[in-house]
Design a protein around this nucleic acid. Sequence first.
DNA 1: TATTGTTATACTCTATAACTATA
DNA 2: TATAGTTATAGAGTATAACAATA
Lengths: 143, 143
Amino acid sequence: MKRDEEASAPLGIEDALAQLSFLVHGVVGKIGAEHDLSVIQARLLGILRDRSPGMNELARYLELDKSSITGLVDRAERRGLVRREPSRSDGRAVDVVITPAGRKLVSRLQAEFEKKIAVLVGVLTPAERASLSRLASRIVARD
Amino acid sequence: MKRDEEASAPLGIEDALAQLSFLVHGVVGKIGAEHDLSVIQARLLGILRDRSPGMNELARYLELDKSSITGLVDRAERRGLVRREPSRSDGRAVDVVITPAGRKLVSRLQAEFEKKIAVLVGVLTPAERASLSRLASRIVARD
DNA sequence: TATTGTTATACTCTATAACTATA
DNA sequence: TATAGTTATAGAGTATAACAATA
């Protein structure tokens, strides 16, 4: 949450992670914005890349109320990025499916994200990048 | 942006950083929510902890339009967390100053954040935590 | 003229509560 | 009764454009 002392005193791990988190989040936000997508819309597409969940399941993935998902999917659907398909096993439910246009867009976002992250971690040596990758993976794995 | 393969294949550095970023961002969000604060409001207080910037400067820190800052500060001011002070050097400008109540709240948030992050990085050894901290610091330092 | 900040407006995101339809 | 999803409503967060006041 601080912003000075970059080069001076080493950051505590909380500050280091907080700043890194906002930085990466900002990258997602900027890339999304270039395609008129919010972070949450980008995350939605990212999830639908390899899944076709129902609204409720989507709410659990995104940790949002299901009523929020309605609008989220509405707006994505209006743009032709996803579509609702009636579930065949449950008459109440729908499956949310990514469209070809949605898939194309999310691939593009992914590629741009990788490129920007590559620049950011370019200050590290390959060994350091591998190390960072492993450490970060271990932290998220316990979730 | 993926979510499976945690234990299986090692994550690419982009996925590892993306997941870590959302995780940390989520921690800030949850702690904030416990105090009826959004992430952006928490960040605002964090910035004001050691600064009393004008609206424009605040817009640069938060990378938002200045018109968005007006509402942000309005809501924080309504809750007694910050206050506007007319600048003495520039008749058009105001300084945004954190109040004692705001300072108290942000200290609490910081403490809770540190505690939760400590739990998250508890899967690492002290040496690994130091390593992660240094690597993350170097990435954010170049910003 | 340029800059600081606010206002008006419109849209996205979000939660809560009440509802419909199916299980 | 319980679950899947939507609707109505209200409020926060955001940007754009137009504005006021000061530099």
